[in-house]
Simulated scan of single mutants.
Amino acid sequence: MASIYDFNAAKLSGEDVPLSEFKGDVLLIVNTASKCGFTPQYEGLETLHADLAHKGFKVLGFPCNQFGKQEPGDAEEIANFCKLTYDVTFPMFAKIDVNGPSAHPLYEYLKAEAKGLMGSKSIKWNFTKFLVDREGQVVKRFGPQDTPEKIRSEIEALL
């Protein structure tokens, strides 16, 4: 059975990381952007990460520039923004595409496992979230309007 552990992704630093590194953790995988109306969700994501890390929870952030060109920066600019503006400590990965022919294979898998409204696969906007259980299976997709605070109880139920 496939899982997210079958994929690798590059961190902002450029280091290639097998997602099997996160085996046993509950994960919230999020496509992020620095110049979006939903960008303040970084604060809630960091709070979740900090509050629940000791229970085996991690947020994984994947910057994406496909929606309104709201993530125009390079890796260094993204890292500086996340650290200086929201003091992000959760893992941030290299900028990727989440839709189209250049979509990252991890996102192809996530979209197939948890479809959006009316069965659509494509990601509609920044800060779409995928909740993944300790076995690497996708449990649920949340839209950008679903704040970290709103989905906390569903995360805690998997911990």
Rank of each mutant, 00 (worst) to 15 (best):
M1P: 01
A2F: 01
S3C: 03
I4Y: 11
I4M: 11
I4P: 00
Y5W: 05
D6I: 01
A9G: 05
A10C: 06
K11I: 00
K11H: 07
G14L: 11
D16F: 01
D16P: 00
V17C: 03
S20N: 08
K23A: 14
K23D: 08
D25K: 15
D25F: 06
D25L: 15
V26I: 09
T32Q: 07
K35M: 05
C36G: 07
G37S: 09
T39D: 05
Q41Y: 02
Q41M: 06
E43M: 03
G44S: 11
G44C: 10
G44I: 03
H49I: 01
H49L: 02
D51Q: 15
L52W: 10
K55P: 00
F57S: 02
V59K: 11
L60S: 05
L60P: 00
G61M: 09
G61P: 01
F62N: 04
C64Y: 12
N65F: 09
N65Q: 06
Q66G: 09
Q66C: 03
Q66A: 04
F67L: 10
K69W: 02
Q70D: 03
E71R: 05
P72A: 11
D74T: 05
A79P: 00
F81V: 05
F81H: 10
K83P: 00
Y86D: 00
Y86L: 02
D87S: 15
F90M: 08
F90W: 12
P91A: 14
P91M: 08
M92D: 02
M92N: 14
F93K: 14
I96V: 15
V98G: 09
N99E: 10
G100W: 13
S102E: 15
L106V: 09
Y107Q: 08
E108V: 14
E108D: 14
L110C: 09
K111I: 01
K115S: 08
G116D: 10
G116C: 07
L117V: 06
L117C: 03
G119S: 13
S120P: 00
S122N: 14
W125T: 02
N126H: 11
N126L: 09
N126T: 01
F127G: 00
T128P: 02
F130S: 02
L131S: 06
V132Y: 12
D133P: 00
E135G: 03
G136P: 05
Q137F: 01
V138F: 08
F142W: 10
G143Y: 13
G143F: 13
P144A: 15
D146W: 06
D146Q: 13
T147A: 13
P148N: 09
P148V: 03
E149A: 15
E149N: 05
K150P: 00
I151T: 06
R152I: 02
S153V: 03
S153W: 01
E154P: 00
E154A: 02
E156M: 01
E156W: 01
E156K: 09
A157Q: 10
L158D: 00
L158K: 13
L159Y: 11
